[in-house]
Each structure stands twice: as C-alpha cells, then as structure tokens.
Design a protein around this nucleic acid. Structure first.
Lengths: 206, 206
DNA sequence: CGGCGTATGTACCATATGGTACATGTACCG
DNA sequence: CGGTACATGTACCATATGGTACATACGCCG
C-alpha cells in the first residue's frame, strides 16, 4: 500500500488519468484509441489497460472526472448567495464563454451526444446532466421569490439558453453576437423574476 | 446512362444513401463502420466504397443530405407568413419535440459535436449550422417590427432556447417539463416583440 | 537479505477495419 | 449479336485495435 511520506507525485493511475483528461479535452474522446493516447502520454497502451482495466474503464473514469469538475463548478454557483441574480448570471456566462473553456465545452457536448446514444461509459452522466445544473438554478430562483413551478421552468429555460448559446458560440466563434443574445435574454426576460411578478402567464393580453 | 422509362427505383447509389440515412439516424454515425452498415443494408461494404468512393465520401454525403432536409424544414418555416409569431413558434416546437423526431435530433447533435472537432465530412455544415436557422428567424422578427439588432439577438436566443431544450428533452425525456420551460419563454418573453417595444434595454431601472 | 506487491516493458494474438484486385454479371445500344 | 458502361460478388491485403502472456524492474517490510 503506497503511502509515501511526501505526496510529491500522486499515484501513477492518477497521473495517467489527469494527463488523459488533458489530452481528451484537447483532442476529443470520440476518436480516442489507447495506443495514440499512450504515445501522447509517453507510455504504452499496456499501462492504460493495466491501470483502468479496459478502454471502457478509462472512458468511464474520464466521464466521472468530468462530472466531478462540473459539480465543483455548480457548487461554486451555490456558494455565491450575495450577488443579485442577473449579475450572478452575467458572471457565470462570462466564465463559461471564455476561450479557455471552449475545449472543455467541446468535450462536454461530445460526451453529451454519446450519452444520448447510450454509450456505456456515460450511463452515470445521463441522469444528472440536466438535474445537477437545475437544482442550484432552481434554488436561486426560489431565493428570489419565484413560485415552485415557475422557478423550475425558468431554471430549465436558463440552462437551455446557456447550452444553446454555447453551441452557437463554439460553432460561430462569434462572441459578440452570442453575448448580445444572452444580454437580450437577461435584460428582457430575467428581470421579471426579481420584481415578484408571479404567474402572470394567465393574462394573455396585458 | 440510366434512363429507364418508369423511375420505379432510384439509382442504386440513391437507394444506398437513403437506407444509410435511415440506419445512421437510428444507430448513430460515430460508431459507424462500412461492414456493419453494409450488412444491415443487405449489401457488401465493397458496394459502399464503390458508390461513395470512401467512408469519408459516404459520411460527407450523409451530412449533405441532413443539411438538405434541414433547409427544407426552415423553408417551410419561411413559407408560413400568416400565423402570429408565438403560435408559429408553438407549432414549430411541437413538431421538433415530437418523439418521432428524436432520432433525427440525436443525429444532429452527434454531427454537431463532430463538426466542433473539425471532422472533415462536416466542413460544409459548420458555416451554416447556426446561420441557416438564424436567417428565417430574423426575417420573422423583422416582419414583426423588431429593429435589426434586436431581431438578430432575439433570433439567436430563440435558436439557443430551442436547441438547449431539445438537449434537455433528449436526455430527460421529460416532455412536460421541457414544454413548460418553452411556454415560459414564449409567454413571458416573446410577447415583447409583438408589442412594438423597441430598444428598452437602455433603461437599466424601470 | 528475501520475498512480495506494484509497476512497467516487450512481444504477441485474434479480430476488425478501410480499401483494392479480379472476375462476373446485366442491360442497353449499336 | 457484341460490345460497353454500370453494377456486384469473392477474395484478399496492410494496418490498427483492444487485450494478454511473460518477463522484469523497483521499493518496501519482515
């Protein structure tokens, strides 16, 4: 049992996984082969199979790790309770839309597509790929006085807007245009939440 | 030169392509191999290479065909000028969200992810994967009296909402929940367009 | 020291893949 | 009839893949 005095370097398995995450984020997960990966990491595919059991095992671990990062991100979302919601949304968006996040998002949508096909290594993900994000958003909306159902619908909408605009951004790389659309959403729509306007949807003509 | 009196059956290439579209819609395009496909179509991978030059050639053709279908769909959107925009949006959504469309949308997002990775057979798609849909939406918004910039931002937003909610739907299969979010969007936000409200975003506090 | 668990390197295997060579069929057109 | 273009079937090839067998290093603990 490895318990070296200084934790200078993590376990080899951990190092391999971290390097794999990096490689996969950059080059995608769909075309991944053990040999190419191993060569890029300066090891042999033999070691990957040794430490992860199989290619499937590796992929499963990669997805698990991605989920963990995502959870950390949403947790950070939850932690910030002081900021007004629209400003909070702007910050969140500017984090997500940043160039440096693009590779991660490309990977996210790639894995998302695989999950929609039921690929085995994504089984754990499909259950929470929406809900894990929904919960904190619902909480924020409720905290701002929205009724339960509205809070949920609005959260779902916000999530959809965010992912939809990210898809747009990654394809067009038009940061300005996408920012404008998000701003359009935030300034025209979201304010309704803060003003305590409840269930006005019945009144078809104001 | 094949010009049979009755066009009973299209060219073999065309039949193969149609069958491939069907197969790929059902089983995905990421894991596709010529041999498996050929077996499913009751032919040999030899013929696929013969008629499409290579696997890449086949994939390119599949993507091209998908684009064509998409264009037909948006054209239908453009044609309908009489319906009020919100009702038009509801119809569009109910078409897209229908169970029968799910396989197509799964394929769409799968190909989208590949396009984001720069896969060669998707090159033609990346340019228009947003714009092709944006144009008709912008036109509708303009027709309803929105200023150029607002029309564009709103169109972009609508597209993002639609795609984001489709992603949600495909993952959660929660049609009710997603419908509620869309309705939330349509009833709370879109009405702003019809009322001739222009450029109100400057007024930071009403 | 000696054994033992973790880790790694080398070589190999069965299988699947995309693509090709060659032969064969089939239908139309002169 | 005979040829010619399109179409198809059979067999093959080089390559790449995931996985495994075997040998071997390294470091710790008794």
């Amino acid at each position: 049992m490895t318990k070296p005095g200084a934790k200078a370097a993590a376990s080899p398995r951990e190092r391999l996984l971290a390097a794999t995450m990096d490689h996969v984020t950059r080059h995608g997960i769909g075309e991944l082969t053990l040999r190419q990966l191993a060569k890029a990491l300066g090891t042999s595919h033999r070691m990957l199979v040794y430490h992860f059991g199989s290619k499937e095992g590796l992929l499963t671990e990669v997805v698990r790790r991605s989920e963990a990062e995502q959870r950390a991100f949403t947790a950070q979302l939850m932690a910030d309770t002081g900021t007004p919601p629209i400003e909070q949304a702007r910050r969140l968006w500017s984090q997500l839309a940043d160039n440096e996040m693009w590779p991660r998002e490309r990977l996210f949508f790639e894995v998302y597509a695989q999950a929609l096909r039921g690929r085995p290594h994504t089984r754990a993900l499909l259950d929470e790929i929406v809900d894990a994000w929904l919960e904190p958003l619902v909480a924020i909306n409720r905290r701002n006085g929205m009724a339960r159902d509205d809070a949920r619908a609005a959260a779902r909408l916000s999530l959809a807007v965010t992912r939809g605009l990210l898809l747009d951004l990654l394809a067009t790389q038009d940061r300005k245009g996408v920012d404008a659309a998000m701003e359009h959403f935030l300034t025209s729509y979201a304010p309704l939440a803060g003003t305590g306007a409840k269930k006005q949807k019945r009144r078809s003509r104001p």
